[in-house]
């Protein structure tokens, strides 16, 4: 975490800004944080504010705009120039690709949102890289654990750390919520989602600058998976409780129906909002506290402001490590709770 704060702080002079003018006002820091929270098409570790050189590497851009168009994001020159591909012109504006004319004009509406056409963007963005990395890591670690069982019943080495986690998810999350008989079917989803979210959350705490689970599209996708699994595994009782609640008078049944349908939809909504908001808030707070180093320099001097910022950031970062686990746990827990509600055999009361 310590190195993380330092790298973040040192990469504070980054992006968008003109040469020789480091980010040092409140508005600039705010804009920088907002930029970090968004997905990006290239990987930048450090930008030299004096010369405006970015140190990092570009990522491939894949657009669907009447046909697949692929090119490297270096063509955008970090949003400074227009990329011309197959007769169409594209420009980056606040991390998003817009279709423009040859000059790269972007027209804004009243809310400062561009009115330009947006091509469908299937690029390998930073978040996609993060996801691929997490997926690969999981495959490597857990297939090693699986192979370890061929040698003997007790795993060795790092697999010893992983095995209790798998057992934890199985015994503390899946079994009590879904039930002894049916939990096995959902273990693949629950385990994958748990470790996927956890690894991505932790990846967000490294100085690499990932913010995958703080992306609304990612959490929407995760929550939709849970939503569809719950709906497809719902038994007759489940649907009966939604559309024709047993044991209450008919007028009540009619009133309860829309409420229950709404409840069906708010469950995944709260799942996606919770994960998104927690991670976004965590990143925001950590980066704001790092920003304090620059903002408080005038009042406390370089050493004082750095010290204050360091202690606060360290404290919040430790909490964020806990939150990283807690959010993965909560997501998996609630998913299995919803699945358990859908497959439960009700005793008739």
């Amino acid at each position: 975490m310590f190195t993380g704060t330092v790298v973040w702080a040192s990469s504070g002079d980054e992006q968008h800004k003109s040469k020789g003018n480091p980010i040092d006002t409140k508005e600039e820091i705010d804009a920088y944080i907002r930029h970090h929270l968004q997905d990006s098409h290239d990987f930048i570790f450090y930008t030299d504010g004096e010369t405006g050189t970015h140190y990092g590497f570009p990522l491939p851009v894949i657009l669907w705009d009447g046909g697949i168009k692929t090119f490297m994001s270096s063509k955008f020159h970090h949003g400074e120039s227009v990329a011309e591909v197959g007769g169409s012109y594209y420009k980056l504006y606040h991390g998003k690709v817009y279709k423009t004319d040859a000059e790269g004009t972007i027209t804004l509406d009243d809310h400062d949102h561009p009115t330009n056409a947006k091509p469908l963007d299937f690029s390998i963005t930073k978040s996609v890289v993060g996801m691929l990395f997490a997926g690969l890591l999981m495959l490597l670690l857990f297939s090693a654990l699986a192979r370890g069982y061929k040698k003997g019943p007790i795993p060795s080495g790092f697999a010893r750390v992983l095995e209790p986690l798998v057992i934890y998810v199985r015994d503390e999350i899946a079994r009590p919520n879904i039930g002894e008989k049916k939990y096995r079917k959902y273990m693949g989803f629950l385990l994958t989602v748990f470790f996927f979210i956890w690894i991505l959350n932790l990846l967000g705490l490294t100085p690499l600058g990932f913010n995958v689970t703080g992306n609304i599209a990612v959490t929407v996708c995760l929550a939709l998976f849970t939503f569809f699994i719950v709906q497809f595994s719902g038994n007759k009782e489940y649907w009966k409780h939604i559309f024709w609640m047993p044991g209450v008078p008919v007028p009540m049944k009619i009133i309860l129906m829309p409420i229950e349908v709404l409840g069906m939809l708010t469950k995944p909504f709260s799942l996606l909002i919770r994960l998104f908001a927690n991670i976004t808030a965590g990143h925001f707070v950590v980066m704001s506290l790092i920003g304090l180093m620059i903002l408080l320099k005038a009042q406390f001097g370089a050493v004082g402001s750095t010290g204050i910022s360091l202690i606060l950031t360290l404290f919040i970062s430790v909490i964020e490590i806990l939150v990283a686990f807690l959010q993965a746990f909560i997501f998996t827990m609630l998913s299995s709770l919803f699945i358990g509600m859908a497959v439960a055999e009700h005793d008739h009361h």
């Binding site: 968004q38 997905d39 998003k96 469908l120 963007d121 299937f122 690029s123 390998i124 963005t125 978040s127 996609v128 996801m131 691929l132 997926g135 994958t192 989602v193 996927f196 992306n215 609304i216 599209a217 990612v218 929407v220 996708c221 995760l222 939709l224 998976f225």
Partner: peptide
């Protein structure tokens, strides 16, 4: 902020 492309990629990857 919602990016359909990222959503799509995430769905496939997951």
């Amino acid at each position: 902020d919602f990016s359909p492309g990222l959503f799509f990629m995430q769905a496939i990857i997951l």
